[in-house]
Simulated assay, not measured.
Amino acid sequence: MEKQFNTRSMIFTLYGDYIRHHGNVIWIGSLIKLLKEFGHNEQSVRAAISRMSKQGWVQSEKRGNKSYYSLTEPGQARMEEASKRIYKQDSPSWDGEWRLLVYTIPEEKRHLRDELRKELVWSGFGLLSNSCWITPNPLEKQVNRLIDKYDISSYVTFFKASYEGMTTHEHLVEKCWDLEDINERYSQFIQEYSQKYIIDKNNLAKDDMSDGSCFVKCALLVHQYRKFLFIDPSLPQELLPEKWLGDSAATLFTDYYQMLAKPANRFFESVFE
């Protein structure tokens, strides 16, 4: 089978959707077997998991001559947050306040700045102006986690504020996020996956799909949909454009996922050790 998507993010998907619900630990042999279903070879799985370990997302332990991998605390927190956002049904409602995060990170710690930028985008912050990031969502917990993780409390100032102008909230949103582009991507997702959903629904009804095939399709679905976490800031309903497709995409995703979940889980459990 051709290899689809990069190995590391596929492993993240498997941890988020399966491994963390089965005691959070997996033998490397099982992981290799599962990823083989997506066309990843043993070498790339070992390389990816060792990279994740260096980055502090997973940790390994030896039992006899077998290596087992589990999510670290930051890894678990990231998976919790991701899964809350992936499986949410509707856009959150808004308390009317904005959160502002401003940092001045010295030049010699430039790598920290890049890391922080990636994390802020992932959490749904938008860049208002140089080093000033905003979000309407109550992300205080995530911000504190970031500050601890990178040990940057002396470089960061964090506010909760009301917007007094000079334009509208909508204008502020436009300045920080390209919702049109995100909406277009949701539209593509809906087009592609509503067709797949109908075909698979028919095949399942005819008993024409193996558990292994459901597992692959389910993981790839989550994997594709998970990409929206990196671009969609999960804005509250009040700040979204009228013809927003995010909620329709979420409904399609949930229906499709629930249809595949049971047989997919059966397959996972047959390989899991």
Rank of each mutant, 00 (worst) to 15 (best):
Y186V: 08
Q4C: 13
K217I: 05
K66R: 13
K141A: 10
Y87G: 06
D200Y: 09
P241A: 06
P138F: 06
C176I: 06
E119Q: 07
K36R: 13
E140G: 09
H40A: 05
K196L: 10
P138I: 08
G126Q: 03
L101E: 01
W57H: 03
L100M: 09
G16I: 02
L146T: 04
G212K: 06
S248E: 12
A261C: 05
M259S: 02
C132D: 10
R117S: 05
S91M: 12
L239G: 00
R51F: 04
Q43D: 13
A261P: 01
V173I: 10
S93P: 04
F230I: 13
G126W: 00
L120Q: 01
K33E: 11
K262W: 06
D17C: 10
E242R: 13
V58D: 00
W57E: 07
D232Q: 03
I199D: 15
N265F: 05
I198W: 12
E115T: 15
Y256W: 06
D151W: 06
N137V: 10
M10Q: 04
G75Q: 03
H223G: 03
Y18G: 10
D181V: 11
T13F: 03
P241V: 06
F159P: 07
T72H: 01
A205V: 04
L139F: 07
Q237Y: 14
A261R: 04
Q76A: 15
L127F: 07
P233K: 01
A261T: 10
R85E: 11
N203F: 02
S93E: 14
S129W: 09
V102A: 14
M10C: 08
K33D: 08
R20G: 02
A264E: 00
Q89F: 15
R266V: 08
T135F: 01
Q59G: 02
L127G: 06
E61H: 05
V173K: 02
T157K: 11
G39L: 08
Y18V: 13
L172P: 03
G96H: 09
S83C: 15
S50W: 08
L260P: 00
L139G: 02
F189N: 01
E140W: 06
V222F: 11
E273M: 14
M10F: 04
S210I: 01
L35K: 01
D181Y: 12
E273F: 11
G23I: 08
L116E: 04
Y18I: 14
G246V: 02
G39D: 10
L139Q: 10
G64L: 03
A47R: 11
D207R: 08
S44I: 12
E108D: 11
I190V: 04
P138L: 12
G96R: 07
Y87P: 04
S270I: 00
N203L: 14
V156E: 03
I134H: 02
Q76I: 13
E140T: 15
V271N: 01
V222Q: 09
D114L: 07
A82W: 13
R78G: 04
D90T: 13
Y163Q: 10
M52V: 05
C132S: 12
N202Q: 14
K109E: 12
A47V: 14
S154V: 15
S70L: 09
A77P: 03
R46Y: 13
G212P: 01
A264D: 00
K262S: 15
K217P: 00
F253G: 00
D90Q: 14
K227I: 05
G126H: 02
E170I: 06
N65Y: 09
A250E: 07
C218S: 10
K149M: 06
I26K: 03
K109C: 10
